[in-house]
C-alpha cells in the first residue's frame, strides 16, 4: 500500500495578500514639496530550485527522456478518461514536446536523453514561485505500445529548502494504441518501429497497465521477450528542493 498526502495550496495566496498590503501601506501621502523619490526597484523574482532524481526500476524497459511539466489547472492524465493528444504522443513515441504548446503549461524541462533500465538521472528544475503549484512528470516505457509512468499534478509549494519527497510510479496505459507488441509498432530498441500514430484502436481511456505478455508467454506475434515484462513500481522519483 502506498499513501501520499496532497497538501493545500493556500500559502502562496497568503504571501501575496501580505505583500500587497505592505505595498499599499508604504505609499506615503505626498504634500506639495517636490520630492525626488527613487522608484522602489521591483523585488527580484527568486526562482525555487529543485533537484529531481528519477530511477528506472525496470529490467529491460528504457524510459524516454524524462519530461517535467509545470502547469496550472490541468491534469496530465486521468484514469478512466481519454488521453490528451500530448499524452498520447509521449506514451506512443516518447516525445513530450507537445506539452509546451498546451494551454495552462508554464514550463517544460526535459532530461538529457533515454534513461536506461537501472540508471538514475538528476534533473535541475528551476521554477518561478508562481509555478510550483502543479508539477507533473512523464516518461514512456519505450519497449511497449503506449505505456507511461510519472507523477500527476503534485504541488511543491509546501516543500521547504533541503526537504525532499519520494514517489514510486506504477505503469499506466494511455489506452490509445492496442497492446499488440507486434513488429513495427514499438519505438524502443526491442523493435525500432513506429512511435506516434493518430489512430486510437484501444479502449481510449487511461488505465493501469496490465503488463506486457511477450512471445515467451504465448503472444506469438510479439517482438518482446521475457525480460521486457515489468511489474510495479517502474519508476522512483525523488524531489529535493535545493533553493
Amino acid at each position: 500500500m502506498n499513501t501520499f498526502k496532497t497538501l493545500p495550496r493556500n500559502k502562496l495566496l497568503l504571501v501575496a495578500a501580505i505583500s500587497s498590503s505592505l505595498l499599499l501601506s508604504a505609499c506615503s501621502d505626498s504634500d506639495n514639496t517636490p520630492e525626488v523619490t527613487p522608484p522602489t526597484p521591483p523585488a527580484p523574482v527568486v526562482n525555487q530550485v529543485y533537484s529531481v532524481t528519477v530511477t528506472n526500476l525496470t529490467a529491460n524497459q528504457p524510459m524516454s527522456p524524462i519530461t517535467l511539466i509545470a502547469h496550472g489547472d490541468i491534469s496530465a492524465w486521468q484514469v478512466g478518461s481519454p488521453a490528451s493528444l500530448a499524452l498520447e504522443t509521449i506514451a506512443e513515441s516518447g516525445d513530450g514536446s507537445l506539452f509546451s504548446s498546451m494551454d495552462d503549461v508554464d514550463s517544460v524541462t526535459v532530461g538529457a536523453g533515454i534513461l536506461p533500465p537501472g540508471m538514475s538521472e538528476s534533473i535541475e528544475l528551476s521554477l518561478a514561485p508562481d509555478d510550483v503549484d502543479s508539477l507533473s512528470i512523464l516518461t514512456m516505457l519505450v519497449n511497449t505500445n503506449d505505456a507511461f509512468a510519472g507523477l500527476n499534478d503534485f504541488s511543491l509549494s509546501d516543500l521547504a529548502v533541503e526537504q525532499s519527497i519520494r514517489f514510486r510510479s506504477i505503469a499506466y496505459d494511455a489506452g490509445t494504441e492496442s497492446n499488440s507488441e507486434a513488429k513495427g509498432t514499438l519505438p524502443g530498441p526491442a523493435d525500432g518501429g513506429e512511435g506516434f500514430n493518430a489512430m486510437r484502436d484501444d479502449v481510449d481511456r487511461v488505465h493501469a497497465h496490465p503488463g506486457v505478455i511477450s512471445q515467451d508467454d504465448g503472444l506469438t506475434d510479439s517482438v518482446l521477450s521475457a525480460s521486457h515484462r515489468f511489474d510495479n513500481p517502474v519508476l522512483n522519483i525523488t524531489i529535493n528542493r535545493t533553493q
Binding site: 493501469a208 496490465p210 503488463g211 508467454d217
Partner: peptide, 9 residues
C-alpha cells in the same frame, strides 16, 4: 490474456 491480466494496484 490481452484483456483480463492486471498488475497491482
Amino acid at each position: 490474456s490481452r484483456i483480463h491480466r492486471w498488475l497491482n494496484p
